[in-house]
Amino acid sequence: MSSVILQGTTRLLVALILLFSVYMLMRGHNLPGGGFIAGLIASAAFVLYALAWSLQEARAALRVSPVKLAAIGALLSLASAVPGLLKGFPPFTGLWLFIGGGEGDKGIPISTVLLFDVGIYLAVLGAVLALFFTIEVD
């Protein structure tokens, strides 16, 4: 498919969708959202890109191979089990670190839960795209 309109709008849309996916990832901690759904949204962006341009272009836009992305994501999720070890808790115990906290404000929370979610995000993105690239041969 090579439609100028689709290709032009896709460039804009892809950026927006990816941004939205990161928003969904971050908001997932206290509101509906999260790593899985954000990963799906992000992969939708690349699928759209592949439809508008071509599979090769989409692959090139991703830069890393999707399988590698999925593996890195899963490793990040596993890594979130490790901080528990250092503190003597069981694996996957949720731990928080608050940066720049002050009076009545806890600061920016960084947690192992977030790390896990980011890992899931990358793993889903990688896995879905790996599958899409395998099925969709043009």
Binding site: A71, A74, L75, L78, A81, G84, L85, F89, P90, P91
Partner: peptide, 18 residues
């Protein structure tokens, strides 16, 4: 204890990913 029982699946997953 938690780690000992979690290792039988954590270890192969990590190994598999590498």
């Amino acid at each position: 204890m938690g780690w000992l029982l979690a290792l039988p699946f954590l270890l192969p997953i990590a190994t598999g990913l590498f």
